[in-house]
Simulated scan of single mutants.
Amino acid sequence: MEQPLPRKLVAECLGSLLLAALVIGSGIAAQRLYPDDTGLQLTENAAATAAGLFAVILMFGPVSGAHFNPVVSFVDAAFGGLPWRQAFAYLPVQVTGCVSGAVLANLMFSGSAVTISATHRATVAHGLSEVVATVGLILVIFSLARSGRTERAPAAVGAYIGAAYWFTSSTSFANPAITVGRMFSDTFAGIAPSSAPAFIAAQLVGGGLAFLLVRVLYPGVPPSQAADVLVPPANRVGIS
């Protein structure tokens, strides 16, 4: 049975909200618990994000595919899995969810609802890191989907993002929606608005490169298999 688009949009919005809340909230908690140990702050932020992302994907995957990321949605559409109309409909709710999640995280830690980040990150190294982080994320998702291992995607995506917090200098945003959301929290996980465009551009470049790499590594896969993103939505049972 085809899932109605409004239900998918609610799932994408809620999933994006929880993703932003766990990324930013765990960053705030880590910063307050260990204000003088940046390494420990990053360790705790990465661990919470990896575990939380695993759970959130399982929670909403059967409804919408658990994208929470415009790059994932557009690559899925380019492979023929998600209709372009739905990919474009996902975009505003993913951004809205991530901004709302940032506000929620701020409020949960008794901060102002909106605080604009002053953390500048737009360097060449950060841009390169975002390209690499996004390429890796898309490769994880679609290599599993196109090789019939979709059930492993929630754990694999969580593990990859947790690791990429450490091996990229940008701490692996890899998601335009979460990049926008993180502008609204002047905390450990924030990004200054002036740095966001460079991050988003790098993420789009990474998504395009990953699309080409997946086509090279897994050629000839029909759209029905290309559509298996993260967790198969209920209307694709049997086919992330």
Score class of each variant (00 low, 15 high):
78 A>L: 05
51 A>Q: 09
56 V>H: 02
120 H>N: 14
114 V>E: 03
132 V>A: 04
166 W>M: 05
87 A>P: 08
104 L>K: 10
54 F>G: 04
98 C>V: 12
168 T>N: 09
101 G>I: 08
111 G>K: 05
66 A>M: 06
93 V>I: 11
150 T>D: 10
155 A>K: 08
83 P>N: 10
55 A>F: 15
93 V>F: 02
59 M>P: 06
166 W>T: 01
104 L>T: 12
84 W>K: 01
126 H>F: 15
112 S>Q: 15
106 N>T: 10
56 V>M: 00
76 D>E: 11
97 G>H: 03
148 G>S: 07
125 A>L: 14
58 L>R: 10
85 R>E: 02
168 T>W: 08
124 V>R: 12
105 A>Q: 04
124 V>D: 10
55 A>R: 12
141 I>W: 06
93 V>H: 04
169 S>K: 13
150 T>K: 09
166 W>I: 06
161 I>F: 04
153 A>F: 08
94 Q>V: 07
134 T>S: 02
128 L>Q: 11
126 H>Y: 15
104 L>R: 11
58 L>H: 13
103 V>G: 11
152 R>M: 14
160 Y>H: 07
80 G>V: 10
92 P>M: 05
133 A>W: 02
66 A>T: 00
162 G>E: 11
158 G>S: 09
107 L>W: 10
111 G>V: 02
117 S>Q: 11
110 S>R: 15
122 A>K: 14
